[in-house]
Design a protein around this nucleic acid. Structure first.
Length: 271
DNA sequence: ATCCAGGCAGATG
DNA sequence: CATCTGCATGGA
């Protein structure tokens, strides 16, 4: 038990070795967060949370404690997961981002966000996603805009997506929204990995990499590891045995997150 | 400037 | 099934 729900709007996280807000938010699973005076503001779908960082514990003040207890995966002990990840080449990454957790992202938000992310740079598509929310998402109680719900997304046409900076992905997004309208998240949740992957690949703009992101970040399939250009470059430097082992097993997706964050961390140090 | 970015769709061997 | 090409756009 690393966290307690204090009341309907408050969570206290007591084990910071398993909860590093900076690392979680910068590990590339979510794009709607901002630094504040005393911590972080996070928006997921139409929900918001303020993380107030402390020395030995932190407080999450939000609109729905149950939602964010689940969102931050607070019932899972990540020490057990980290104990399973024993590959030598992972140890630096674990030391760097040991407080990362895999979030339970909203399905529609995750699908559309990662379609926009394809062949795009992180800074640019983060801006695009946030502008999308500014224009089409409702204002939440905390002042920031929610990610537009599926009905609001249905009102966005190709020209609108282009104006927001989605480029050639605009037509994919229009189709994807139509397809999302017919999909049922609760039904998809019941599918095993390969069937789920097949369904996701039918969505326009969703290929193998984006499907893997959706499976990991919206369906919490911890054994699915998205392989992007960053991970490819990192893996290319390993020997054959290391390549086999590093993104293998029931927590391959978690391992991938530690690596991705570590690579981002190294890049930030260079800049 | 000009290369590239958390790849993908569509066309072609 | 595997490989190839074109792609909007702004950040570096």
């Amino acid at each position: 038990m690393i966290a307690k729900i204090i009341d309907a709007y408050t969570i206290c996280v007591e084990d910071l070795s398993q909860f590093d807000p900076y690392a979680i938010l910068h590990s590339g699973q979510v794009f709607r967060y901002w630094q504040t005076e005393d911590g972080w503001l996070v928006i997921s779908a139409c929900h918001w949370a303020r993380i107030k960082t402390g020395i030995k514990s932190l407080i999450i003040q939000c609109d729905d404690a149950e939602y964010f207890y689940h969102y931050f995966d607070l019932s899972t002990d990540y020490q057990n997961i980290k104990n399973e990840l024993t590959a030598i080449k992972l140890q630096k990454a674990l030391q760097c981002g040991g407080g990362i957790r895999i979030l339970h992202g909203n399905f529609n938000e995750t699908v559309l966000s990662f379609i926009i992310s394809a062949n795009n740079n992180i800074k640019r598509f983060t801006k695009t996603i946030n502008q999308l929310c500014e224009e089409y998402g409702r204002t939440t109680q905390c002042g920031f805009h929610a990610f537009p719900d599926i009905v609001e997304c249905t009102s966005i046409n190709e020209q609108d997506f282009k104006r927001l900076g989605c480029g050639y992905r605009a037509s994919y997004l229009v189709k994807a929204v139509q397809q999302l309208n017919k999909l049922n998240y609760e039904q998809l949740k019941k599918l095993p990995n390969e069937e789920l992957r097949r369904e996701l690949l039918k969505i326009c703009g969703v290929g193998p990499k984006v499907a893997a992101c959706i499976m990991l970040f919206a369906f919490h399939r911890l054994n699915v590891a998205p392989v992007d250009t960053w991970i490819k470059k990192a893996i290319a430097q390993l020997n054959p045995t290391e390549k086999e082992n590093i993104l293998h097993g029931q927590y391959a997706g978690v391992a991938q997150q530690y690596i991705f964050y570590y690579l981002q961390h190294l890049r930030r140090e260079v800049l």
